[in-house]
């Protein structure tokens, strides 16, 4: 069972991701904001992290650089409303593995999650 951390502040999106990814046979943990995410990251190891960029308390970018510094091998997928090229480029430059924009297709997302999990 793979351990996935979902960092997201929209309750509807959280529920759907939790439901879908759990159905896929993963162990899903949820952080509703950047601070909570930091706490969970300190105490747990994850096989994959799915994060929004606009989060309360800690910016998405700060969170990504924190993850990259401490567990550089954990794959990160960004799930964000941004479609701006520079924001997407910034994310990839920081070492993000995949970038999915909202609105998103849950099936496609689950596929990309699986692919990244299998690669590692």
């Amino acid at each position: 069972m793979k351990k996935i951390l979902v960092i997201e502040d929209n309750p509807m999106v959280i529920k759907s991701l939790e439901f879908k990814l759990t159905k896929d046979g993963n162990n899903v943990m949820v952080a509703h904001d950047g601070r909570e995410a930091m706490k969970l990251l300190k105490d747990n190891e994850f096989d994959l992290i799915l994060t929004d960029l606009m989060l309360p308390f800690v910016t998405g970018n700060e969170l990504i650089s924190y993850i990259k510094k401490n567990t550089p091998n954990t794959p990160i997928i960004v799930l964000s409303t941004s479609t701006q090229e520079n924001i997407i480029m910034d994310a990839f430059n920081m070492g993000v593995d995949d970038f999915i924009t909202k609105p998103f297709s849950p099936n496609e997302l689950s596929l990309r999650v699986r692919r990244l999990l299998n690669k590692n």
Binding site: G34, L55, S82, Q84
Partner: peptide, 11 residues
């Protein structure tokens, strides 16, 4: 400052 940095706005 940290809370200002996390506001929702594209640019």
């Amino acid at each position: 400052v940290r809370s200002l940095l996390t506001i929702n706005y594209p640019s």
